[in-house]
Design a protein around this nucleic acid. Structure first.
Length: 872
RNA sequence: GCCGCGGUGGCGGAAUUGGUAGACGCGCAGGACUCAAAAUCCUGUAUGGGCAACCAUGUGAGGGUUCGAUUCCCUCCCGCGGCACCA
């Protein structure tokens, strides 16, 4: 290896630090650019090789922007609350605070060794009481706004983490973190009403520049459906009637939600979820033994079983008969677990002719199927005309004999012949239904019964009245009504939750002896009685602290706001700093955070916006995501497989510049790419080549250097510059390699320097090259900068302007085709006219050979691109 | 099942308002330098045929549009990611 990377990397890192080169001053004349990476969770394993992928890419952008004259904020911090640390604390008996300090020290050292241009003066740590003071303050803002409420409801409980999970954290019934089984448990939980923001979270996606894929995922997750709630009359039952269905305590009514009111004439039965049936039983419905058993069994089963059984549907006839409000017909009411208790009203009208699930159910239990929508004849005809035999399946979507598309109404009384889309809302009116919008998004389960999180800053006082008039929750989440046991706040004994006053924040995590969570689901904090027992800030009487802590996502929902004013102790950030730096101009992170962190933080930010604490409706202007770095064999890196690459070793053996540039070079930024040590070594060879070239350049006399190569260099640098903007870092690096291939073509005898046929560019051009190389290999670029006798550092240089006249070459090589096949190349000006091109082409022996004895019928000429001679 | 993305040499991957397919890197082969090795440099490297110039084929499969298709259209196969009985 030609240069001593250990020496020069240390040297330049120290210079940068001494000079405060990457410190972002608040305010100033320059335009600002806020570049953000997802701050890491400092795990005990140290930095993963995947981390630098994101950090290096945005480091390149940040550095380029500084060259371009922007005041760039590129900050870093630690998302340090979390289970792995806590579990390690349990195992070793050590304090999580101490473990976190050690881990962040390691991460800091590792990140600094990569030469990333972070502004370290703004480092934040979510576990620092000075930080979580504001997380707690924000929670109280939610509380005061009525968006944080405590309720008992079934939540996802991870059996191995012993922790309640948000819906977003459960993947196929398994814990997102540990992969262990989850089960439903009824627990008192703090919730945050994110559903109130569902519409805005959805609509405002149109105002931001995210990768389309990310937007799609967010839209799916929010899952907005527009439809109607329709009441079906059922005879009031002697035992007490059907109450509380769909949140409306209206006797003798079953309310369903549907997005297809136009199919109501085809509704041949109703299906209620086991949850709803249970509710009926609770209010005194004398259900049959069979129904009771079915409901009991269904509710006991985990959700995963309910779906894992696949398509085979089960259900029982309740014996209840409902009236279809469209046609007055009597239809049976069934209970079946394919209807979910937690969505819509927990009950549906089944239209087997136009819904696959209902169709399947009807088939199995031999229930009536009535067709009320027909594909429009025109569509069918078109497909017949062009002879596509299976046209119906592909275009008009007739699936397994049931048609789910829009079409013309039949068997629908006065609506016959109408287009279904048009009849939809007229029918809603006719049957006295209500338009209704539903979301898949649920409120955010915000409590964790663990130690290592922000304490929720509330105390329970038995004597005080609630400070919040209404704990406003019902409207946000009507679906809760269909869950079996959602107690109302007023059912509780007197007393209420009192916020800890701002001047008493932060509520600091007390020391405990044992960090273990309990099987009963109580936080270890509950055992610290002298912490739990406190005085009520309102009345001064005895009170008890909330012992739940906040989820990991809390601190990470607003950390980008803290960076803009990281040491402020009057507010989470000053208005001036927020107005200057926000929004984030470019945000990069993992694909895995698109439905969790990204949604939560957008919501959190919108809430702060509504409260007047921040001044932008969306926190991130542009969002990118990077792909995983896989192990050499294409599988995921994991400790257990022993295929993990240690960044420290790479930096030690090959240097940070090699690692940075290789990570950018290895493949398209958004895609997963396998690691290759040989690939890394190849990049190191390139950097050595650059260093040797510069050394020889220095050794040569001025007369050997020429401006004639300036035009050669320009297009390569121009491409690099553009590729940075479009996140095509891999081709940017390729472009550098091609450039140096051009510059360093050598003849064989290395001992005879005069034999090098090398292109020594002018000093001005070499400086340009080093400036553009700077963001990729900043240490080497600076070392070379110094070597060529320049003062200062690369970081101070302006980004080169590209001379358009140099980008257009006088002569290009252009392909000549005969009948579309490449036969020769000619050199000519891209401005040349067709006659010139034709003359040159037909002069070529190879072209002549293919023209021989043929007649030219046509010539296609695209200047600079192609000349195609068509012959017969 | 639905939605999204993708399928190009031995490998990672370039190239799409349609215009010389395989840039750049890795690997491999041969050569130079060396007592030798390492390092470095040079040459070659899609496939088949030929000593060669060259010819033919070739971007998952099959069809189509076009002077010309990796790129556009249709049908199908495979892989990855997300959602998954959301009415």
């Amino acid at each position: 290896m030609a240069y001593n990377h250990q020496e020069i990397e240390k040297k330049w890192q120290e210079r940068w630090e001494r000079g405060g080169v990457f410190h972002a001053p608040d305010f100033g004349d320059k335009p600002k650019f806020y570049c953000l990476i997802e701050f890491p969770y400092p795990s005990g394993a140290g930095l993963h090789i995947g981390h630098p992928r994101s950090y290096t890419a945005l480091d390149v952008v940040s550095r380029k922007r500084r060259h371009q004259g922007y005041n760039v904020l590129y900050p870093i911090g630690w998302d340090a609350f979390g289970l792995p640390t806590e579990n390690y604390a349990i195992k070793t008996g050590r304090k999580p605070q101490d473990i976190t300090r050690e881990n962040t020290d390691t991460f800091r050292r590792q990140l600094k060794s990569l030469g990333l241009s972070f502004d370290w003066s703004r480092e934040v740590n979510t576990t620092d009481p000075e930080y979580y003071k504001w997380t707690q303050w924000m929670f109280l803002e939610f509380f005061k706004a009525g968006l944080a409420y405590k309720t008992k409801q079934p939540i996802n409980w991870c059996l191995s983490c012993k922790i309640g999970l948000a819906n977003e954290e459960v993947v196929n019934g398994k814990c997102e973190r540990c992969g262990g089984d989850t089960q439903k448990r009824d627990k008192e939980q703090w919730m945050i009403a994110i559903t109130k923001y569902a519409d805005r979270l959805l609509e405002d996606l149109d105002t931001v520049d995210y990768m389309e894929k990310i937007k799609v995922q967010q839209r799916n997750w929010i899952g907005k459906s527009e439809g109607a709630e329709i009441d079906f009359q059922v005879p009031p039952l002697p035992e007490g009637g059907l109450g509380g269905v769909g949140g409306r305590p209206q006797s003798g009514v079953v309310t369903v939600f549907t997005t297809r009111p136009d199919t109501i004439f085809g509704a041949t039965f109703l299906v209620v979820s086991p949850e709803v049936a249970q509710k009926w039983i609770d209010v005194g419905w004398n259900a049959s033994e069979q129904v009771r058993e079915y409901v009991a069994v269904s509710l006991k089963r985990e959700e995963i079983d309910r779906t894992a059984e696949g398509k085979e549907k089960t259900g029982v006839d309740t014996g209840v008969v409902a009236i279809n409000p469209a046609n007055g017909k009597e239809i049976p009411v069934w209970v079946a677990d394919y209807v979910l208790g937690g969505y819509g009203t927990g009950s549906i009208m089944a239209v087997p002719a136009h819904d696959e699930r209902d169709f399947e159910f009807a088939k199995k239990f031999e229930l009536a199927v009535v067709t009320v929508i027909q594909p429009e004849p025109l569509q069918v005809m078109i497909h017949q005309d062009i002879g596509i035999s299976n046209a119906m399946q592909s275009d008009v979507r007739i699936v397994s004999d049931c048609f789910v598309g829009d079409g013309l109404m039949v068997n629908s009384g006065e609506f016959n012949g109408m287009k279904s889309e048009e009849a939809k809302w007229e029918i809603v009116e006719k049957v006295g239904a209500r338009r209704s919008v539903k979301y898949k998004l649920r409120d955010w389960v915000f409590s964790r019964q663990r130690y290592w999180g922000e304490p929720i800053p509330l105390v329970w006082c038995d004597n005080c009245p609630p400070v919040i008039a209404s704990e406003a929750k019902q409207s946000s989440d009507e679906m809760i009504a269909s869950s079996p046991s959602a107690p109302r706040n007023d059912e509780r004994k007197k007393g209420s939750w009192i916020p800890v006053p701002v001047e008493q924040l932060p509520v600091v995590l007390p020391d405990v002896d044992k960090y273990e969570p309990t099987d009963t689901g109580e936080s270890p904090l509950a055992a610290i009685t002298d912490w739990v027992n406190t005085t009520c800030p309102t009345c001064g009487g005895p009170a008890k602290r909330e012992t739940d802590t906040m989820p990991n996502w809390a601190g990470s929902s607003w950390y980008f706001l803290r960076y803009v004013d990281a040491h402020n102790n009057q507010a989470f950030a000053s208005t001036e700093a927020l107005k200057y730096w926000m929004p984030v101009d470019l945000y990069n992170g993992g694909m895995e955070h698109t439905t969790l962190h990204l949604l939560y933080s957008r919501f959190w930010h919108k809430f702060l916006f509504d409260r007047g604490h921040v001044f932008e409706p969306e926190p991130y202007k542009r969002r990118h995501s990077h792909g995983l770095i896989l192990a050499q064999d294409g599988t995921k890196m994991s400790k257990s497989k022993g295929n993990v690459v240690n960044p420290d070793e790479i930096v030690r053996d090959y240097g940070a510049d090699s690692l940075r540039m290789y990570i950018l070079f290895m493949g398209p930024f958004e895609e997963p790419v396998p690691w290759s040590l040989n690939g890394l070594i190849g990049v190191r060879r390139f950097l050595d080549k650059v260093e040797r070239y510069v050394q020889r350049w220095v050794d040569r006399q001025e007369s050997d250097k020429s401006e004639e190569y300036d035009g050669l260099v320009e297009p390569y640098l121009y491409k690099v510059s553009n590729d940075i903007e479009s996140f095509k870092f891999n081709t940017a690096v390729s472009s550098f390699m091609s450039l140096f291939k051009e510059l360093t073509a050598e003849v064989v005898d290395r001992n005879e320097p005069s034999n090098f046929i090398e292109r020594y560019v002018s000093q001005v051009t070499l400086k340009k090259i080093l400036t553009v190389l700077g963001p990729f290999a900043p240490h080497l670029a600076n070392e070379c900068w110094e070597k060529i006798g320049e003062n200062g550092i690369v970081e101070e240089q302006a980004w080169p302007e590209f001379d358009a006249s140099l980008l257009v070459q006088d002569e290009v090589e252009m392909g000549v085709q005969v009948n579309g096949k490449a036969r020769a190349t000619i050199r000519l000006s891209p401005m040349a006219d067709e006659a010139t091109a034709k003359k040159l082409a037909t002069a070529d022996a190879k072209v002549q050979k293919h023209l021989e004895g043929k007649e030219i019928v046509k010539i296609i000429y695209v200047p600079g691109r192609i000349l195609n001679i068509v012959v017969k």
